[in-house]
């Protein structure tokens, strides 16, 4: 098992190199170092000399991938690609183009992202499972049909409408919570309340429906019939047997997203003005800050791979028949 995990982690290295190469290529087709200098130096009165100086100062005056003028290994290492990629593997992200430490920024922004994403995830999981259980309990009745229809309608609405509508009703008309912003400490509660509720609501359609099908599949199995024949109450069957067994596919299905919670949500964070990693990413795309975008891509990929490994582990934990080799 440990050997397997080590192998998986080693496999991550070529994947990450591939990720780096791809983002690097995409970004430099779009964004020549000249462009980056121009964005950083502002609009008014920028001289060509200033652009040259900036490139020199920030290490963008080298060739991109292959340095023909250097000798030996330097041909590959004295390039922008090597300079800007190598340090990533030890999670040293360097400085953004406006001179701020990216690692530091990521650490400070993780908190706000998590304070939205984690409760959304947990509350979401609980309420989706509850809702799905209810529908299962009342399967093939009017309630079930109404529930499923509701689910389909809810998942057919664009996420943007949940946010726009939520802000309009709850904050503007009813004055329940501040429209946007983020605060420290306990006071923070009022800021994160609405984003969390909206996050939970926007996922309820798709997830509940999916869980319902899992429960239904489980409830048709023989052991459930046996239990019922033994006189176990419907609720008992549902909670003691169905829920317990259905949690395996549900949990293993959601484990992969847990590490990605750190990345935050792009839409929610920018609409609600939450200073998390999601809005950091959007800002970086808009400002064309290559260093930040690369760091975020790298981080996202690492977390995704971590999620995959966690999924593997969770399989072995919940189902002893599965062996990792």
């Amino acid at each position: 098992m440990i050997a397997y995990l080590i192998r998986r982690m080693l496999y991550a290295i070529p994947v990450l190199i591939g990720v780096n190469l791809l983002t690097f290529a995409l970004f430099f087709v779009v964004n020549t170092p000249d462009d980056m200098a121009r964005v950083q130096l502002g609009i008014k009165r920028v001289t060509p000399e200033a652009i040259e100086q900036w490139k020199q100062r920030h290490g963008y005056d080298k060739p991109l991938l292959y340095n023909a003028r250097a000798a030996g290994m330097d041909r590959f290492t004295d390039t922008i690609f090597f300079d800007k990629s190598a340090s990533m593997f030890v999670f040293d992200f360097g400085y953004s183009d406006d001179g701020r430490s990216i690692s530091r920024e990521i650490v400070t922004r993780m908190g706000p992202s998590l304070s939205i994403a984690l409760p959304t995830f947990l509350i979401g999981l609980v309420s989706y499972v509850t809702f799905a259980l209810l529908m299962t309990l009342f399967r093939a009745t009017a309630l079930d049909i109404v529930g499923v229809t509701l689910c389909v309608v809810l998942m057919s609405i664009s996420g943007l409408f949940y946010i726009i509508g939520g802000q309009f009703l709850v904050s503007k008309l009813w004055h329940w919570v501040p429209i946007s912003g983020y605060g420290g400490g306990f006071d923070n509660f009022r800021f994160v309340l609405l984003p969390i509720v909206i996050g939970v609501a926007s996922g309820i359609g798709a997830s509940s429906r999916w869980y319902r099908t899992i429960f239904l599949e489980e409830i048709g199995k023989d052991y459930v019939r046996t239990a019922r024949a033994k006189g176990v109450s419907e609720l008992g069957v549902l909670f003691r047997h169905v829920l317990k067994n259905a949690m395996i596919p549900i949990l293993t299905g959601v484990v992969v997203v847990i590490p990605l919670l750190f990345m935050g949500s792009l839409l929610t964070e920018s609409f609600f003005g939450i200073p998390g990693l999601g809005s950091y990413t959007i800002d970086a795309i808009n400002a064309q800050d290559f260093s930040v975008v690369r760091a975020m891509v790298f981080l996202g990929s690492v977390l995704y791979i971590a999620g995959l490994i966690l999924t593997d582990i969770s399989y072995t934990l919940v189902d002893p028949r599965v062996r990792l080799s």
């Binding site: 802000q167 904050s171 503007k172 004055h175 501040p178 429209i179 946007s180 912003g181 920018s270 609409f271 609600f272 003005g273 200073p275 809005s279």
Partner: peptide, 15 residues
Amino acid sequence: SREKETIPYWNKFLQ
């Protein structure tokens, strides 16, 4: 305060 979106900005002003 940082206010990226104009609608929250405007509504907070009105409030």
